[in-house]
Amino acid sequence: MGDKKTKGHVVVNIEECKGCGLCVEACPVNVLYQSEKFNTRGYHYAQYKGDGCTGCGICFYSCPEPGAITVFKRWDKITEKRFCKNCDGERFVFTLEDKPGKYFCTACLKEV
């Protein structure tokens, strides 16, 4: 995660992705790709390479599925990974200004 260009963060909700590839095509910095793997409905879901996201939000607006892509514009606020009970795994977490002291999972958006 040492890439200086990384300003944002993108999370793809794998099960909601229909593998149309529009986000991959739209991403101006090419940090999204279509997975070799299938999701449970048989689509090659989109994935984030892990760094380089600028947080521009273009993939969000290209994506036809309301909940498939979440874009975090402030990578500097996503500081650490924590264990998310809901996702049952280590996830990046973010904070909200109006809810100080609380951490939310970037994948499920729920409090960890």
């Binding site: 099960e15 909601e16 229909k18 593998g19 149309c20 590839g21 529009l22 409905r41 689509y43 969000f60 607006y61 290209s62 994506c63 036809p64 599925e65 309301p66 909940g67 498939a68």
Partner: peptide, 22 residues
């Protein structure tokens, strides 16, 4: 069973428009 995704085909414009209206 699938109550998380829309009924629209992959790449359909409806979803994008829905998102922008919402």
């Amino acid at each position: 069973a699938d109550k998380l995704t829309t009924t629209y085909c992959p790449g359909c414009g409806h979803g994008i428009i829905h998102k922008m209206i919402a």
